[in-house]
Every structure is written in C-alpha cells, then in structure tokens.
Design a protein around this nucleic acid. Structure first.
Length: 155
DNA sequence: GCCAACGTTGGC
DNA sequence: GCCAACGTTGGC
C-alpha cells in the first residue's frame, strides 16, 4: 500500500468534479517520470492526494483511491485531442493513465503555504520539484497532511 | 500575466 | 552525446 499525489487544475477538473463523477480516467499525463509512477508504481487500492494546482490558493483538496491499473491513455490516439500523439500506436502506446475513484474531500484545503511552513514536510517532492504532476508521498507525509486538514489552520 | 525551473527536442 | 533553444508547468 503506497501513497501518491496527483495534480489537477481545478478550473479544468477539481475534486468536486470527481465527487460527482465518482470515477474517472486520469488522462493527459505527458511526462515520462509521472507516467512511470503510474505504470510501475501505482497499485489498485493505493491512495492519492488530489492536489489543486495553479489555483487560489493551491493545495491538497481531497483523497482518491487508485481503482484501476495503468492502461493506454485513449487521448493519445484521438486526433481531435490536444493531447494527440502521432508517434503512438495502439500496438505501441506511449502514454498511460490509471482509473481513480473519489474517496473524500478534506474538511478544508491544506494550502501549499501551510505545507511549506511545516518543517516535517520539507522533503516532500511537491515542495522540491513543483513540476511533477504524479508523485509518491510517504506514509508520514500522508498522515500529517490528513491530520492538518482536520485541524484549524495555524495563523 | 510574468517568469523561474525544469523537461524535451534537434542540430552538430 | 552535448547543449542551446524552445516549450510547459505552476507559483506568485
């Protein structure tokens, strides 16, 4: 059982969209490192934070469960998609996606600012490589952030 | 909207 | 295989 963090811009797809959809394919990841975490790291049953990026404020918004293993990302074959990849074929797909299931929305958003202020979280990938959109989170980090969401924000 | 940091591409 | 140029992410 491992923990992850996946990012989405809430204007495009937020935790509230997922709470309505219940299940979605985590498509359109076009970064090799992120892809490799989905194909070689994620297992069905793992939990992941749903992080709102490029937002006011950005932060951890909820928890999702990996409900389906990595499979070819359909958007790479879709000529109408802006994520179409002419080099990909169904025999040799390049990009993969997992299926994620809504688990819960945190009682409050834990902002990036709060995460930065927490010295125990200073090694989080999120805080050291802001550009990786699928990344592992340690159990300690996961539990610490869930706990923060249940407490009032420190001011 | 700007731009720093990082990833990718392609010429050599 | 190096690295300059370019593109993208995402915080601010």
């Amino acid at each position: 059982m491992q923990y992850w963090l996946v990012k989405s811009e809430p204007e495009v797809y937020s935790i509230d969209h997922l709470s309505k959809d219940k299940i979605t394919l985590w498509e359109n990841i076009r970064n090799y490192q992120a892809r490799n975490y989905m194909t070689n790291g994620m297992q069905v049953g793992d939990l992941a934070f749903f992080y709102h990026s490029n937002s006011k404020p950005s932060g951890v918004a909820g928890v999702v469960e990996i409900s389906g293993a990595a499979r070819p990302d359909p958007s790479q074959f879709d000529k109408k998609s802006e994520y179409f990849d002419p080099k990909a074929t169904t025999a040799k797909p390049i990009w993969f996606c997992v299926e994620v299931k809504f688990k819960e929305k945190l009682k409050r958003l834990v902002s990036l600012e709060e995460l930065k202020a927490q010295s125990s979280l200073k090694n989080m990938i999120l805080l050291n490589n802001s550009r990786l959109s699928v990344q592992p989170v340690t159990k300690n980090e996961f539990q610490a952030i869930v706990k923060m969401s249940s407490q009032k924000e420190k001011t």
